[in-house]
């Protein structure tokens, strides 16, 4: 829990544009909290977060929402696509909510990239788990964010799938020149990242 007791106390660290970082830690160590703070979903009780030269703490709520929508893409473990919208509509939601022009060509491009071209008109519950996750990645990269965050993207996958998802994340991040930060407790993936932060296990349970 965050709030009065700090769960996470990190020294200053800097990630250069385009780098790939892994945040490694056991569950409860604050990985998700860190990711939320980096993504501007949560404000740190102390300290500052600077993303793409913008101090997130200096932004008011609405401006922070907009900044996040435009410059930060987040891939969640459960990729909660909106169940009432088709794949294409889910992807168009990203530019719409971020106040960017809704570029259908970009939707096709992203879907082609993720091998989902023929599923544009499908609803989320008509997709396989793997397809849903790919749509989740597609949505995160729709607006060509500067920072791509992924929370436990491989935890529930077998070795083959986990490798494939990482491949996709690397490829997409590279395609748009985004910095990639992935959190995981999954040690299988650590050798693929050149840099990592290891979070200490929770102080007490």
């Amino acid at each position: 829990m965050y709030g009065t007791t700090p769960v996470l106390d990190l020294p200053r660290f800097e990630v250069a544009q385009g780098e790939r970082w892994l945040v490694l830690g056991l569950s409860g160590s604050g990985k998700t909290t860190l990711l939320h703070i980096l993504g501007g979903l949560l404000r740190p009780t102390q300290g500052t977060v600077v993303v793409a030269d913008q101090d997130l703490g200096a932004l008011r709520e609405d401006a922070l929402d907009r900044f996040r929508g435009r410059h930060i893409g987040i891939v969640f473990q459960e990729n909660h696509l909106l169940p009432t919208l088709t794949v294409e509509q889910n992807l168009l939601l990203a530019p719409y909510l971020a106040g960017l022009p809704q570029d259908r060509a970009r939707v096709r491009e992203v879907l082609r990239h993720l091998d989902l071209e023929d599923r544009a008109g499908a609803f989320p519950d008509e997709l396989s788990t793997g397809q849903r996750q790919r749509v989740g990645i597609a949505r995160a990269v729709m607006n060509r964010p500067r920072l791509l965050l992924a929370d436990e993207p491989t935890s529930s996958l077998d070795d083959v799938r986990s490798a494939r998802v990482l491949d996709l994340l690397f490829r997409e991040a590279e395609a748009i020149g985004a910095t990639l930060i992935v959190t995981t407790h999954d040690r299988r993936v650590q050798e693929r990242f050149e840099r990592r932060i290891e979070l200490a296990p929770p102080v007490s349970a």
Partner: peptide, 16 residues
């Protein structure tokens, strides 16, 4: 609530 949180993540303001 998860859908709504998702919309916020994608850049929707609270007013929206």
């Amino acid at each position: 609530r998860y859908d709504l949180a998702m919309m916020r993540t994608l850049g929707a303001s609270r007013a929206m």
